[in-house]
């Protein structure tokens, strides 16, 4: 199975995402923003960072890139797409997920190991979690405050499209404690926390068992592998 990772100018976590894909058991395929050749991938990750320097709005210019336009075309046909942090912002700017992401409520860049609750385990990227499971995933963002109008929020709640909610603290003032969303078909998931930073013992967040032993992020990638192959 081949999972693409798009690199935009200013992307930071493309190599970590590739590494996570490899650890999960699939083949990472580096993709370049300026090319519309998706190289026959079975799924794609839009990684974190500051694409195009966050110019205009976070993710706005990346949403217009040739590689992204090709991803948008394939989204309707069910291509599994995971947007992480800046990648989530790209998905929102590309209108693949609703709402918007604005500067954190308290204006500070936040970096912490964040507790999350899995609200929807019925997506291509969350199938290996159990419903309401509590996981810990590193979070690092300056513009992660999720906002949407009342109608959109009601739609997201009614259709169970909120994939993850923040637990313990709401780090960025997101409405309804929204940390991540999915689309209705479940092939597209976007979230602010970084699952690719919690995939290898010794390098993940602390757990009650041991320091840096958290690997809750690995199952995002294992989920899509299991479901595409199976």
């Amino acid at each position: 199975m081949k999972i693409g990772v798009i690199t935009y100018p200013g992307t930071l976590d493309d190599r970590d995402a590739q590494r996570a894909i490899k650890l999960a058991g699939a083949t990472p395929v580096p993709l370049w923003h300026a090319s519309d050749d998706l190289k026959g991938i079975d799924a794609v990750v839009l990684p974190g960072g500051f694409s195009y320097g966050d110019y205009l709005r976070c993710g706005a210019i990346a949403a217009q890139a040739p590689a992204t336009k090709e991803v948008i075309k394939k989204a309707e046909k069910g291509l599994p797409i995971l947007g992480i942090c800046n990648g989530f912002q790209v998905l929102v700017e590309a209108h693949l997920l609703p709402g918007g992401l604005i500067r954190n409520e308290k204006q500070h860049f936040v970096c912490r190991d964040q507790r999350l609750r899995v609200e929807n385990s019925d997506t291509r990227w969350t199938g290996m979690f159990s419903e309401n499971e509590e996981i810990t995933i590193p979070l690092k963002n300056g513009e992660g405050g999720y906002i949407a109008d009342d109608e959109t929020l009601k739609y997201l709640e009614d259709e169970n499209l909120i994939a993850f909610r923040y637990l313990d603290v709401n780090p960025n003032g997101s409405m309804n404690e929204i940390a991540g969303l999915s689309n209705k078909q479940g092939n597209i998931v976007g979230l602010m926390p970084h699952p690719e930073h919690a995939v290898e013992p010794g390098f993940g967040p602390d757990t009650p068992i041991a320091t840096r032993s958290g690997i809750d992020g690995l199952r995002f990638f294992q989920s899509v592998i299991g479901q595409v192959v199976g």
Binding site: L56, R57, A60, V92, G99, G100, I147, A148
Partner: peptide, 8 residues
């Protein structure tokens, strides 16, 4: 469509 985002 591009220069602004109507959500914000």
């Amino acid at each position: 469509d591009f220069l602004s985002n109507s959500v914000i």
